[in-house]
Design a protein around this nucleic acid. Structure first.
Lengths: 153, 153
DNA sequence: CGACTTGATGTCACGTGATGACATCAACAT
DNA sequence: ATGTTGATGTCATCACGTGACATCAAGTCG
């Protein structure tokens, strides 16, 4: 992240990242499949958190309410790293390879939420639609949040 | 496409593609920014067609009806190349880099449709929502169409 | 204690993707 | 005949990503 912010994603080589971390490029590729993936390290955790929150919603909750619980979990997780989130987002926005990766991560997240809803007994296509709607809300809200003036959490 | 189908996307080098076309790898990269982009050559045309159809819908048409017109245009364009569409889709499905590229193309298409709706006087967020809904329909319908037994157009 | 695994890292070599600089050549206009 | 323009080729170069093998530290067991 430091290097990506300093000089931009494309201008940063994997060798430089590895050096900054006190490692070798080869080792970098043992931890991250890609030069891109290092920016999405946390997205797996976020997805797990959200799926767990969705599964933990009360049985009485509607599909959209369960999705809402997942979004709350995401908000409380991201809320602790607002500066980081903002920087990360502007790095991603500046490069199309990174935007592509982000899209596929969001698609994976939507699929995971839909699967979680089906586990709750929600039938298709309702499960997928609720999941997609939740991701749409997430995108819009996240975008507003990181571009917002200093204020709220 | 021939080579991607024969031996898979990753196993095909740009040099081979260029050779098959009677050219040089250097020339390939003058026409396509990427090894991936060659599979998405037509998506720009498709997008233009759809935007034109959307713009050409009668003033009386609702936003969703205008989007429907765009989808009809896409259907008649793709309907003429069903085998090609099917092969292309299975190549894309088999490789995650290609799936990423496809997602960003669809996102671009959604943005173009939303913009077209705004030009028709549709306010946000209705324009974006209608566009996203149209793309969702497109994805599902296209998926079913290419995986369908030999029958319909 | 010494030998033996195991996991993380480094080193090296290599193929491939992608780009810049320059040369070539055909088509065409004047 | 000359010069221009556009498309292509050639060459050099860099960075990404991976396989093969070496090394070294931490632990395990006889």
């Amino acid at each position: 992240m430091e290097l990506y912010v300093e000089r931009g994603y494309e201008q940063t080589t994997v060798a430089e990242i590895a050096e900054r971390a006190g490692l070798t490029a080869r080792t970098f590729f043992r931890y991250f499949t890609d030069k891109r993936e290092v920016l999405f390290e946390g997205s797996g955790q976020l997805q797990d958190m959200m799926v767990t929150a969705l599964a933990g919603a009360p049985d009485s909750a509607s599909p959209m309410q369960a999705v809402g619980a997942a979004l709350d979990a995401a908000a409380s997780m991201l809320g602790q790293h607002r500066d980081f989130s903002g920087q990360r987002q502007s790095v991603i926005a500046a490069n199309s390879e990174l935007r592509e990766r982000e899209l596929i991560k969001l698609a994976s997240l939507a699929a995971a939420l839909a699967s979680g809803l089906r586990d709750r007994g929600v039938a298709e296509p309702r499960a997928s639609l609720a999941a997609e709607a939740g991701i749409a809300v997430f995108r819009v809200a996240f975008e507003r949040w990181v571009s917002e003036p200093d204020s709220a959490g």
